[in-house]
Design a protein around this nucleic acid. Structure first.
Lengths: 191, 191
DNA sequence: ATCCGAAGAAACGCTTGCGTTTCTTGCCCG
DNA sequence: CGGGCAAGAAACGCAAGCGTTTCTTCGGAT
């Protein structure tokens, strides 16, 4: 052991360890004992920073959230939605899939976690989708009276449903089909 | 205690107790100790019938499943879908909502349970929706080349998404809007 | 140089559920 | 009417994980 870590340095090491455990074993792997072990520190150090293990998990999740699903303007509603849904599909079929399902499961059982996610993540996503639609309206490939509260979640819903409920496969054909057969017609200006 | 229960009688009492616990406390409440207590029997009796607690939970869930979401022919695709989605919406906003979320969470963590549900429940629902669409095709209010694998889950997906992920409210306006703005146009024969 | 706050280590008791075991008690069948 | 099988009751050891506590050991700020 080189030197005893303190303050921010130790803090970062703990968060990194928690993130590792979350990614590899899901939310239930983020225990005080496991994090302390993985960060080569002790539980007392953790309890000095978080009131309980759920708080540490919430913190870890919010920290991780900034990463996923970038969001840029491709110049068309179709292109934007393809990019967004392909981002989700990649997450749902990649190595993170299990962890995502675990997070949803954890949120079901932990009201505080559910609130945190709703406020810090889902709200963010909703706003992004609303912007995407707004751009389309200004551009003219989305009708002005589109029901935003439906359009913003319609595509994602199917992917989540497959991930969490039906278990049906998620692939690029599905994404393209959703965009071209469902979403674009739904938001298109009426002839 | 009148007389010592045996065989089928005891069996039924155990299943009823498990069902109670499932409904009131979710899947995690279906523990061997709790079921034995609620059925006024002992754990040894349970272990004589099920290899472990997860098997008992699976059994209980499958037994319960036959109840939900009836399915009749209303004479139109619109009517059928309204009935189906209103059924889901009622489940998702009623007292069973927490239990349903818990079941999904449990299935995430228990591969065997997930398989059981996929085989005994979700397969059943998929078949029902395929029939519903087939009736529409024959009747003429659903186009023959409708992408069944999307149409059969599109409406439900949004409701599940709100229940499990976004937490957004589910009400009858949403159901009607989904049917009239999304589903009916999507399956309607092309002009 | 020293000293106080934090890090680190290691126990502790508590709780919950598991799955097993032992023993007694009753009921039904032959 | 009696013997065997299953019900019922209670205890056991095990495993995790929690949150706490105690004690030692650093090391940076004064």
């Amino acid at each position: 052991m080189a030197t005893r870590r303190r303050g921010a340095e130790l803090d970062d090491a703990i968060r990194a360890a928690a993130l590792d455990l979350l990614a590899s074993g899901g939310p239930s792997a983020v225990t005080m004992e496991a994090v302390a072990g993985a960060a080569r520190t002790s539980k007392a150090v953790l309890y000095r920073r978080w009131p309980d293990s759920r708080a540490l998990l919430r913190d870890t999740l919010v920290g991780m959230a900034r990463a996923a699903i970038p969001h840029e303007d491709t110049g068309s509603y179709r292109g934007d939605m393809l990019a967004v849904l392909r981002g989700w599909a990649a997450l749902f079929t990649g190595p993170q899939a299990g962890m995502l399902r675990g997070v949803v499961a954890a949120a079901v059982q932990d009201e505080q976690l559910a609130e945190t996610l709703a406020r810090d993540l889902i709200g963010h996503r909703k706003a992004q989708m609303a912007e995407l639609l707004e751009r389309g309206v200004e551009r003219g490939d989305v009708r002005a009276d589109v029901p935003v509260h439906i359009a913003r979640e319609l595509g994602q819903s199917v992917l989540w449903h497959r991930l969490l409920v039906s278990g049906d496969p998620i692939d690029d054909d599905l994404v393209v089909e959703l965009v071209d057969e469902v979403l674009v017609p739904f938001v298109a200006p009426r002839a």
